[in-house]
Every structure is written in structure tokens, then in C-alpha cells.
Design a protein around this nucleic acid. Structure first.
Lengths: 141, 141
DNA sequence: TTTGAAAATTGGCCTAA
DNA sequence: TTAGGCCAATTTTCAAA
């Protein structure tokens, strides 16, 4: 299904999602149309879900990013996870095994705002039993 | 430093990193060159760190993604974090507060490969005291 | 901000494996 | 049937005024 050339294209686009097809073609010693048709196919098949700009949160005033685990009672599990997605400050939501059934990445301007988001806004969701925020100190990769 | 228009541009690019400047300009009722100059400036300042394609790991054979916490003795903490970055399978590395000082996102083809990566490759790094993998079941956002 | 030239993308049509 | 080559039209980017 995916051959070596597709994988190389993906590797390149995972590092630079804006690299022109013409340049990718040059790097892989092939034609632009070949690259373009492969990329379009992978987009259609959902292999490439999209392209996003990567922002440094601290540079736009979000000085506190927290990986936050949530414990819920089993009845409200999915509802809680979906509600979490609705918050603008919640950038990512996963369900997972391990210590917490739900993990979320939350951006806040400072500690006070994080407290407010977690305990006043999110904490009010029915079914949440416990909240475990871990503040990210540095992203190394 | 960042005005409202910059923030709107960032919001748009965080959702679609490939949206042409001309389209963004139309949405924000301004000119293409204005948008482009603002974007270039934010790129230069490191506010926009780059652009990446978002890949569905399961569609390229990575069926197991694990958020993994690492405990280390304090002497080896930074060295461990840096070593982790060198593994191709380790896609993200954070230092953080909370249960584990280091958090990493690891991609593997299956459970067996994850076990191999965590215990045979990564686990051999000096100073690692404990490994706590949580397998991501679903990404909701 | 406007303008015009260069570069990249797009779509259609074609051939070959 | 599918991947890739080719070409012409459109769109986007870019630098200078």
C-alpha cells in the first residue's frame, strides 16, 4: 500500500509541511507530478490528516502548558472527554490506558489562569473525580 | 508585540498551515503582502516554529502510540532526556512536573515493538529508574 | 498598498507497464 | 488499472516601487 517513496515523502512533510512539491521531487530524483499525485492520494486516504503551523506557546503569552490527566466514573467517561474538546484552551485530548483514562494538553497564560480553567471551568464537568496536571517545563523534541 | 491581527493569522495557520496568504487576506479583509510580512516576521521571531504535516500513525503501520513517563535519578536527568530525543520512534520529549520528570511520545508498529523499544533500547539508558507507558486509545482532539 | 514577474499548483490528457 | 509524464491555465509568492 505505502511504498518506500511514499514514506520518504511523509518524512519530509512531517518536518516541513510547506515544502513545495517541486523541491521534494528534486530531493527524491523524480517528477513533481509524481509527488503531487502521491500526496493527494495520501490526503484522500486520511494518511495525511492535514497541515498545521507549530507555534511556540510561550511566545504568544501562553507561559503554562500542562499535560493533565483526568479520572472519571465510567458512566461519564466519553461525555467528559467530548466536553473537554470544546474548550479553546484544551489543545489535545486523548483517551488512554495507564494512570488516567483521559489525558489533555491545556494552554494557559499563567498559573492562575490554569487553576481557573482546571478547577472552575473544566472541574465543574459532571463525572470528573480527579484532575492531575503536570506542567511542561521544556519541550526537547 | 502581537496584535489582534497576528493572533487571528496564527489561529488560522494552526488549523491549516497551508492556507494561501491570499485567502487569509480575504478572510481578514487586508492585503496578501500584509499577511505575508506578518507571517515572515513571526517565523523569524520563532513564534511560528515551522509547519508540519499531521499524519495518522495507525494508517502507516504505527498502531501503538504511547505517552510514556520516565523516572530518573537527578544526576542523569538531562542526559536521559537528551538521549531519548535521539530515537526515531520517540516523536516528542518533555520535561515536566508531576508524577514523572520526563514525558515522551513513542510510536511503535505493535505492542511487541513498543516493549522492545522501551525495555531493550530506551530502558538500557543509564539512570532510568522507572518507565510508565500509557497507550493512547484514541485522539479526540 | 499596488504592480508585475517568477514560481508553484492545478487539471486534463496522454503513454506505458 | 494505476503510476507517472507533459502541457497550458490559474493561483500564489515575492520583491521593488
Amino acid at each position: 500500500m505505502l511504498d518506500a517513496k511514499d514514506m520518504k515523502i511523509l518524512e519530509i512533510l512531517m518536518k516541513d509541511g510547506r515544502k513545495p512539491f517541486t523541491e521534494i521531487a528534486k530531493e527524491l530524483n523524480t517528477s513533481e507530478s509524481s509527488i503531487r499525485k502521491r500526496v493527494r492520494k495520501m490526503e484522500k486516504e486520511g494518511i495525511i490528516k492535514g497541515y498545521i503551523a507549530v507555534i511556540d506557546p510561550s511566545k504568544i503569552g501562553y507561559n503554562v502548558v500542562a499535560l493533565t490527566g483526568f479520572d472519571t466514573d465510567p458512566q461519564n467517561f466519553l461525555m467528559v472527554a467530548k466536553k473537554l474538546c470544546e474548550f479553546e484552551e484544551v489543545k489535545k485530548v486523548y483517551t488512554s490506558t495507564g494512570d488516567h483514562m483521559i489525558m489533555a494538553e491545556i494552554w494557559a497564560k499563567d498559573g492562575q489562569e490554569l487553576t481557573n480553567i482546571i478547577f472552575n471551568k473544566i472541574g465543574k464537568i459532571e463525572g470528573i473525580k480527579k484532575v492531575c496536571p503536570a506542567i511542561i517545563l521544556e519541550q526537547l523534541k
